[in-house]
């Protein structure tokens, strides 16, 4: 009844065009740079880069090895570049699988039959009581460390939180007037999903994906650091594991050995977080509280 009732959709429309904002823009640029680096490592470095011995052990940075070499004479820059590929691929695959899993499970819990919804929600309650990190360590110890297994473990453990967020979003969506109107027209669930819910839920999947990718990068690096990574694959976490094992802190080598991979992890997560936060802020100021 006040001047504020001027068509909310106009606002929504401009928001969708400017989904990222300046903060998200910075994040996107940063992430693109990291992805480009990973792509360089993947396409242009020779096979076995970062795995093979190319110099003397413990070399300081030089023209040939800009970040020096590790205790086995492997090039640290190559490890960093190849590690970017490993981390990002794992993060994106797991984030995609988790998002799909969370969307299906959260969706079923939202609009499925009451018994199914109750079962899923109690299941999520139990999952949320179990400490994630302990589950990862346990699974990595007993099930092995290959890429596929790691991806599967991460996806299986990370879905409950986003599933609950998406369930809440589905419930909100289903109570929207235009969805109710479509239901009253005799529309089937498929139509409601494709024509009505996708418009509202689609943008929500982006922050879910981004947040999951962040968590994957941190957890994967943590596991590798604890010595539970794949020792044959160069990754940021594994490099840091060797730093710890070899007691590199005692010399100046930590600067080029431990610095870059840690910084790479931090920057990647920051880039993702900037994107995620700005999208969440724009989509729904209250949503980020329930993540």
């Amino acid at each position: 009844m006040s001047a504020a009732t001027t068509a909310p959709e106009v606002v929504a429309r401009t928001r969708r065009h400017d989904l990222l904002g300046r903060q998200g823009g910075v994040g996107t640029v940063l992430l693109s740079l990291i992805v480009a680096t990973a792509a360089y490592g993947f396409f242009f470095l020779p096979d076995g880069a970062g795995k093979k011995r190319v110099g003397q052990p413990y070399e300081a940075p030089s023209g040939a090895h800009p970040l020096g070499t590790d205790d086995l004479g492997r090039d640290l820059l190559n490890q960093l570049l190849v590690g970017a590929g490993t981390s990002l691929t794992l993060a994106f695959i797991v984030a995609a699988v988790t998002t799909v899993l969370a969307a299906i499970i959260g969706g079923l819990a939202g609009i499925g039959p009451r018994w199914l919804s109750a079962t899923i929600m109690r299941g999520i309650d139990v999952m949320l009581v179990l400490p994630e990190l302990v589950l990862f360590i346990l699974a990595a110890t007993f099930l092995g460390q290959s890429f596929g297994i790691r991806a599967a473990i991460l996806a299986l453990i990370l879905w409950p939180v986003p599933a609950r967020v998406l369930r809440a979003a589905v419930l909100t969506t289903w109570s929207r007037a235009h969805v109710e109107a479509a239901r009253a027209m005799g529309a089937g669930q498929a139509w409601l999903l494709a024509r009505h819910a996708s418009y509202l839920l689609g943008p929500l999947l982006v922050p879910v994906f981004v947040r999951t990718a962040m968590r994957v990068i941190i957890y994967d690096a943590t596991l590798s650091f604890l010595g539970l990574g794949d020792p044959t694959m160069p990754s940021w976490g594994t490099t840091l594991y060797w730093v710890q094992v070899n007691g590199v802190f005692l010399s100046d080598a930590w600067l080029w050995w431990a610095g870059p991979p840690g910084l790479a992890i931090t920057l990647t997560v920051v880039a993702l977080a900037l994107i995620g936060t700005s999208i969440e802020d724009r989509l729904n100021p209250n949503l980020q509280e329930s993540r």
Binding site: F225, L226, L240, A258, V269, V270
Partner: peptide
């Protein structure tokens, strides 16, 4: 806010290493 995002993104183990290098060693 950006500062908080950065701090929130640092891996615990890496921060621990940095603290050991500076404050410990």
């Amino acid at each position: 806010l950006t500062g908080a995002i950065v701090v929130d993104s640092i891996p615990q183990f890496w921060l621990a290493m940095l603290l050991i290098v500076w404050f410990g060693v």
